[in-house]
Amino acid sequence: MALLPFLHGLARAAGDEPPIFVLNSKDADVSVIDPSTWEEIKRIPTGKEPHHLYLTPDEKSLIIANAFGDSLTFIDPRTAEVQRTVRGILDPYQLRFSPDMQWFVTAANRLNHVDIYRWDGENLTLAKRIPTRRTPSHIWIDAASTTAYVTMQDSSELVAIDIPTQKLLWRISTGTLPADVYGTPDGRHLLIGLTGGDGVEIYALGASPDVPPKLKQTLPTGEGAHAFRVVGDGRHVLVSNRVANTISKIDFVNLAVVDEYPGPSGPDCMDLTADGRYILLSSRWAGRLSVIDTQTRKVVRQVKVGKSPHGVWTLNHAPRQ
């Protein structure tokens, strides 16, 4: 294994790079990894079952959503110090800020609702709790910050919610166990990973948000298509195939799979290093952070973390647009 180019690409020197965070869902904590040494330098206790995480619009706080803990843990993304804990957020399984930074949306996977909060730059105020059907999973918010698209994992549906009025716009059926949802930058398509299938459904969006989208095609990627991570080049997005143990690279302009990488041991959430070369992957069944070189298509490193790692994130990442 040629480690010198690898280490050069991921860290200039010890302490120069912000840490990598991996959420250990079954341990109720966060592994903090130094990318210069690839050692776990500490664990941060959180509420029960941290699954997903999101950066505040001012980039000062990384929010860890603790689903069973009914809380949000705010962590400094540069120092890995806990800033505060916000309690009384019911079942925040998945979370997302609107692009205009005015709204914060959570999906309650266990309690079957979507919460829409107003965000004033520091505090959250619940605008409305919207009952849904079974197991809301992942959220995508359009560029206009007016529409939230949410997958319903166990009722195999996609719903759209008008954010300013907090009204349900429509509901459509999808394939089995829809998980992550991704909207293309041109506003024309939605991609949905089918964890109960072997590919990604691609929907053509309607002329306006209140018009339900239509299924355009199902793109085979691998069994258990689950989580997306945009590459940051304005053209490609990655999807982890949890059962197939692969990662597919999708050209969302031509709507085709153009490359494939290994994704060992139940690949779940991903981040991408700033240069776009290395995929940081939570290998959920192995309890490890896997690092994949996109040029050689090989796993170049694995770091032991906690039980059932889910969300993975670093401030030193490729663009998310």
Rank of each mutant, 00 (worst) to 15 (best):
L72Q: 01
D271A: 11
Y261C: 05
D259E: 15
E223A: 15
L281E: 04
V305K: 01
G276K: 08
D268C: 05
V253G: 06
V105D: 03
Q94F: 13
Y149K: 12
V300K: 03
P164I: 15
G9A: 07
H226P: 00
T146C: 09
L315P: 01
G69M: 09
I20G: 00
G9W: 02
A65N: 05
I292R: 01
A80K: 03
A67E: 15
N241I: 13
V231E: 07
I89G: 01
G196D: 07
G276D: 08
F21K: 04
S173Y: 05
V312G: 02
F74P: 00
M270T: 05
Q217Y: 04
D259K: 14
S173T: 12
Y182V: 12
D34H: 08
R84T: 07
T85A: 03
G232K: 11
S61Y: 02
N245G: 06
D275E: 13
G47K: 08
E40K: 14
R87L: 07
I63V: 14
R277G: 02
L10K: 04
Y117P: 00
G206W: 13
G266Q: 06
G197K: 12
L55E: 10
A179V: 12
T85L: 03
P45F: 15
R43N: 06
T146M: 14
K128T: 02
L90M: 07
P45H: 13
V291L: 12
P212M: 14
R118H: 09
R78T: 05
C269I: 10
P18D: 08
P212R: 13
D120S: 01
F21R: 03
L315Y: 15
A14D: 03
V22F: 04
M101I: 02
A14F: 10
R235Q: 14
D268G: 00
G175R: 15
I292F: 03
E39I: 09
T314R: 06
R320E: 13
